[in-house]
């Protein structure tokens, strides 16, 4: 069963018509013609709706329950994947998936949050909100990658680091801070892809990279639009305004120099054609990885450092 977002209602209506018409039998005179017309209409409508998406609508697309997840990408992009577990300090965080993979004949380390699709899965995955042990598992595997000279690929899709009691007790801030520092000088290439929701420090903690790619309708922000509306407007109804003001779309981030490339999504978003989306991501990641692997180490690190050193906009002198 497909799930439709509010603004996708017109799409849902046409798809329903198509379904009914198909069920009545395609042999009947006139039906194939009607079907063709409906499909054309659907295609146009979908393109229309998706070109005009507001930042808040994009956020909803980025959070779509059927949007391909970290495990979907790993499953479709990698030839093999061996998930590894635990931070060796406290526990294994199911909100972050990490392990060894083969990608086009290369060994790589792959890391990414997993939100879960069914309710049961979501609870198990803590809705993709990692605890410190998740970030420390990621860190352990990044250091493993460094030791054995394997590139790191991370997928970013999380509402943010979990704001919980235990998370604070076990040093959520320290875990995030440590990852930022280690990733900034990790001696292997890092390519990150924002596939859905980039939720603040919880996303950045696995997102310091040589190349940061972002899906067309993905979002990435310092705070969720809901949180921003609550704090600055003191009014949850202002969430769409906050989404607009935060400049959190892929185009915004490209303009601000935060990401390197936007990966176009299939018509109607990644969830309409996960196979096509996964192939596109694979096709986009490979050349970046190859180019980075050719760089001498000191050059790789120098460029990464310069990239982050320049972040921000300053006035005065």
């Amino acid at each position: 069963m497909r799930e439709y977002l509010d603004f996708e209602k017109p799409i849902a209506e046409i798809e329903e018509k198509i379904e009914k018409l198909t069920a009545t039998g395609q042999e009947r005179p006139g039906v194939p013609d009607d079907l063709r017309k409906l499909r054309e209409k659907l295609y146009k409508l979908q393109a229309e709706i998706y070109t005009g998406l507001t930042p808040w609508q994009r956020t909803q697309v980025a959070r779509h329950p059927q949007r391909p997840s970290t495990l979907d990408y790993i499953g479709r992009i990698c030839d093999r994947f061996l998930e590894l577990h635990g931070d060796r300090l406290y526990g294994d965080d199911h909100a972050i998936v990490a392990g060894l993979a083969r990608l086009s004949g290369r060994s790589v380390v792959v890391i990414g949050p997993q939100k879960g699709k069914t309710l049961k899965e979501r609870v198990l995955r803590n809705f993709g909100m990692p605890n410190p042990e998740g970030y420390r598992k990621a860190l352990r595997l990044m250091r493993l990658a460094e030791r054995f000279n394997k590139p790191v690929i991370t997928f970013i899709d999380t509402p943010g680091a979990y704001p919980g009691l235990g998370a604070e007790e076990r040093g959520q801030s320290e875990a995030i801070a440590r990852n930022l520092m280690v990733m900034a000088s990790l001696k292997v290439p890092i390519v990150s892809v924002v596939i859905g929701e980039g939720g603040s420090g919880g996303a950045l903690a696995i997102g310091v990279a040589d190349r940061l790619l972002m899906l067309q309708y993905a979002v990435y922000s310092v705070i969720s639009p809901e949180g921003c509306a609550a704090i600055l407007w003191n009014d949850p109804k202002k969430t769409p305004d906050a989404a607009e003001a935060l400049k959190m779309t892929a185009e915004d981030l490209l303009r601000l120099g935060v990401i390197d490339e936007i990966l176009p999504e299939p018509p109607g978003g990644a969830h309409r054609d996960p196979t096509a989306m996964c192939n596109a991501v694979k096709k986009a990641v490979e050349p970046h990885l190859s180019a980075l692997l050719e760089l001498p180490l000191d050059e790789l690190l120098r460029r990464r450092h310069t990239k982050y050193r320049r972040m921000g906009v300053l006035g005065g002198e």
Partner: peptide, 12 residues
């Protein structure tokens, strides 16, 4: 918050 993603990047 008012500097959006650029503030986040200051962490890195």
């Amino acid at each position: 918050m008012q500097e959006g993603i650029l503030s986040l990047m200051q962490m890195a």
